Simulated scan of single mutants.
Amino acid sequence: MNKHVLLVDGMALLFRSFYATAVHRNFMINDNGVPTNGVNGYLKHLLTAVQTFEPTHIVCCWDMGSQTYRNELFQDYKANRGAPPVELIPQFDLAKEATEELGIVNVGLKGFEADDCIGTLAALYQKEARVTVLTGDKDLLQILNEQVTVALMQKGIGNYKQYTKALFEEEMGISPKALIDMKALMGDSSDNYPGVKGIGEKTALKFIQTYQTIDRLLENVHELTAAQQKKMLAGLEDLKLSRILAEIKCDVPLSCPIDETKMQINQERAAAMLRLHQIKGIEPMVNRLSEIEIS
C-alpha cells in the first residue's frame, strides 16, 4: 500500500500558531492591516509536517462556523468559549487561501466540525491508503486503527507524539473506540458537555477498563459502590447525551476522492501568495519541498 494520506486539523494548527505569538501581541500586521501571525505559524507547522511524514496525498479540514448539529442537540455545547480575537478572524480565510495556493485541498462542511470531516475521510481513505492525522486534539485518538495513526503536536514545531492503535491500548488499557464512552462518563469542560456528575477522568477510565462499554457498565451497575450507583442512575440522561456529543462522526456527507488530493506543491502560486500577503520566512520551506519528488 503505497498511498499515504495526511489529514490535517487546520483549526488546531491555526489556533495553536495564533496564540503562540499573540501572547506577546506579535500579530505581524501586513501593509493592508491584516494580521498574519497565525497563518505564518500554521504554514510552518503544515510544511514541516509534509517534510516529516512525506505523504503522497494531503487534505486540510476546517470548521465551517461555530454552530453544528451538536448545538442542536445541546445548546450549551462549547458555550463557554468566547468569540475569537479580532486579530484571528481574518486569518481563517487567509489560512484557507494559503493552503489552496500551495496546491492542497481544503475540506469543511457546514453543520459539522473539522474532526467529523477527518473521521469521515479517514474511514474512506483507509481502504486504499495509510492515514496519518495531524492534530493537537486528543479526541481524535478514538479513530485509531491498524491503518490510521494520529500525530499529536507537542510544544514547538515538528515535535509529535505519534499514536498507533497498539500504543494507545498499551498506555490506556482500553480500545480507541472506548475513549468515546470514557469521555461520555467524565464529560468535557472544554467542549462544555456534562458527563455524569461526580465521575472524573480516573473513575471513568477505571470503569471502561473493567467493563469495556457503557452498556456493560450499566448491566453491572450493582457491582459499583452505593455512591457510584447513585451518581450513575442520576446521570443517565446526561450520559446518553454526552456519548452522542463525544463521538466523532465518520459518515459525514462529503465528497473528496483520494485522486484529487495528491501532494503537489505549487511553488509559483505559493510564492506569489506569500509575497502578496507579506507572509515572511515561508518561501524557503516551499522551495525545499518543491524540489522533493513525492512518489
Rank of each mutant, 00 (worst) to 15 (best):
I180E: 01
T210V: 10
D115C: 07
F168W: 03
N32K: 15
V50S: 00
K127H: 13
G158V: 12
N71L: 05
K231L: 15
E283G: 01
V148M: 09
L14W: 08
Q264G: 03
C61W: 05
L224V: 13
N266K: 15
D76V: 09
A12G: 11
F92A: 05
E247Y: 00
G198N: 02
Q154N: 07
Y160K: 12
G65T: 06
R16Y: 02
A20F: 07
I248W: 00
Q154G: 08
T132D: 10
K249G: 01
I279A: 14
K230T: 12
E171H: 02
Q75A: 11
Q278L: 11
S295Q: 12
P253K: 04
L47T: 12
I104W: 04
F27N: 06
S295F: 09
L217A: 05
P85C: 07
F18Y: 15
A270Q: 08
K138M: 11
K96M: 12
M153R: 08
A22S: 15
K78M: 07
Q126H: 10
G10F: 08
A95T: 01
F207D: 03
L218Q: 09
G281L: 06
G108D: 02
G65Q: 06
I248T: 14
F92V: 05
R243D: 01
A227K: 15
I279Y: 02
Q209D: 10
G235C: 13
N159W: 01
P194S: 12
G235N: 09
I292Q: 14
E223F: 13
L224E: 13
A20N: 06
S255R: 12
G65C: 11
Q229P: 11
K138L: 14
N26R: 14
V221S: 06
N287F: 05
G281F: 08
G187D: 07
I258L: 15
S17D: 02
T120W: 14
K262S: 11
K262D: 03
T68E: 03
G200E: 05
G200L: 03
S295P: 03
L121Q: 11
V86G: 00
G156A: 05
R269K: 15
S189C: 07
I58R: 00
P284L: 12
Y69M: 03
S255L: 13
L124F: 10
A98H: 13
G103R: 02
L179H: 01
A79L: 09
I258V: 13
T21P: 00
V286Q: 11
Q126V: 03
E97N: 10
P284W: 05
A122V: 04
D137L: 09
Y163F: 15
R275P: 04
E54V: 13
I180L: 05
L121W: 05
L141S: 02
E100D: 13
V39P: 06
N2V: 09
I208S: 00
Q209K: 14
T132E: 00
A79P: 06
I282A: 10
E128G: 13
T203H: 03
K138I: 07
S255P: 00
I157Q: 06
L141N: 05
L245K: 02
L109D: 01
R288P: 02
F53Y: 09
V59W: 03
H4F: 04
L14T: 04
I199M: 07
V196N: 10
R269F: 10
A204S: 15
S255I: 14
Q212I: 11
H57V: 07
L254K: 06
E260A: 13
